[in-house]
Write a protein that binds this DNA or RNA. Structure first.
Lengths: 125, 125
DNA sequence: CATCTTACTTTCCTGGAGGTTACTAAACAC
DNA sequence: GTGTTTAGTAACCTCCAGGAAAGTAAGATG
């Protein structure tokens, strides 16, 4: 490239780190069901395995299982056993760490909402 | 479902809208190259078609072309013709609207960075 | 002890995102 | 007028996320 592309001031190593960080976050939120599970857990506080089939209509047990495993591995959700006289029930809940991702999701939602307004506006032009 | 899942206060219709908004935003940022293109445009201000092959190593012309088209359709980037005495050059640039997505990307990056620290910390335990 | 529910796992399959390569059309360079 | 660069498009292929359906194991229920 004979004619260098003009870079802005930011240091290249930092830029690279930021690329990776963004990649990480998107990988974490991508997929059809992940964020859906997180939003529902935020909304309902705790859910059992079977509950997800009601609140996330269309998800299959295989996919649910693997998504829950992934989210747990990333410490965004956790299992909690509740002991009743007759049986133990496994619930899924958000972790404290998920509080952070909640602010992230809100940012994405706000953008989505304002973007939708934008699109509707530009369609009416 | 005999035993209703306990909902929090938020109205269901609003929740649904927020789901859709989040879906929209993630769809917009997903994919292997989209955000990469946006970050590079932010960094370099303007890029030609061929430039992307240097800054986004590994992207193919087919994919680049389709990603640029999508981003343009969503009004995050725009083409700009620059006239020199000898020829016209097509540049791609961010739109004003992309300013908003820039704050979104920053939020995602910040989460990714702090999350990475978190992971490193928990590995050392 | 037979059946139901819950919480999964296993196997198999498909659509589509993204890669590879080659092609084209226009402008420029020599 | 022959090669080179730019800005794509077209045809084809591959891999894997996610879906469908069935199976399993453990406890509750009757």
């Amino acid at each position: 490239m004979e004619k260098k592309i003009k870079p802005c001031t930011e240091n290249e190593e930092i830029l690279k780190q930021r690329f990776l960080a963004l990649r990480d976050t998107l990988d974490l939120l991508n997929g059809k069901w992940r964020f859906c599970i997180l939003l529902n857990l935020h909304y309902y506080e705790k859910l059992r395995f079977k509950d997800f089939f009601e609140v996330s209509e269309g998800i299959s047990p295989k996919v649910l299982s693997s998504e829950l495993t992934t989210l747990e591995a990333h410490q965004l959700i956790k299992k909690k056993l509740e002991h009743t006289p007759t049986q133990d029930i496994t619930y899924y809940m958000l972790t404290e760490h998920a509080g952070e991702i909640w602010t992230v999701l809100n940012t994405l939602i706000e953008f989505g909402l304002s973007n939708r307004k934008e699109v509707i506006k530009s369609l009416s032009d």
